[in-house]
Amino acid sequence: MTAKMYAHFKNLSRSAYLPVLTFITFLLLWQGLVETNLFPRAYLPPPLEVAVALLYLTGSGLLLEHIGASLWRFIWGYGLAAAAGIPLGLLLGRTNKAREAVGPLIQILRPISPIAWIPLAILWFGTGNNAAIFIIFLASFFIILLSAAASLNQVEKNLLDMARNFGAKEKDLLLKVILPAAYPQILLGLQVALGAAWIHLVAGEMIAVQSGLGFLIIDSRNLLRYDSVIAAMLVIGLLGLFINWFIKKAGDTAARKWGFSYAAPESESKVAGDKQSILFGEK
């Protein structure tokens, strides 16, 4: 093992130490609550039972099926929201007239919980995938739209003036100044929207469809299998964590590929200072 790898693992184990400790404490407390009968077994299945349920769900292939169904809807709903929200948001941020015209309407629609849309979603799309996708779309669309619109405030006017001074037209301004400057804020919006979309995915699936992790929860409840309910809840949490990590990773990779990245390569000295001699006249 090289020294660098060793340092990496040492770092990792140090940063993992506290969360792992918390997690173990959490499980012990949970088990303790059941053992001491503060919470009767019927009201709260202990961790071990949940683990068994999780193993059963995994082994039977049911879990994978439901995860697949959920992810598929998620990708559609969230993907459509991003595909529509980012360009519309940028347009909204760039044109004062559009912002004036559409702003108030958005402000009214935005605070309506996506769950309140479920009756209409079912009326329009029937029970099935499309209704759930619509709910996910609603949950993430406004967040992405508004953060994309606001991201343009991050673009300093001086940078635009500088670019115009060098002869930049709209296309260059957009590709070489506005998008790179707005990118971190857009990415942040995508991450926040991701959380909202994932939360409402489960809500949508509890009502509109017959598959997916949300349905698994409702189905298990109907069978009075609360161990499976909690197992499904844990899977939702872990998958949410994973998707969040994935989006952030993908965003960073894209930024590096397009040269939008603010991260500088490692360097010996952070600020080198004006140490070098006067060289304007060196020529």
Partner: peptide
Amino acid sequence: VLIFQDYALLPW
């Protein structure tokens, strides 16, 4: 060409 007080460099 205008040179700005805050340099107007592209941070990326």
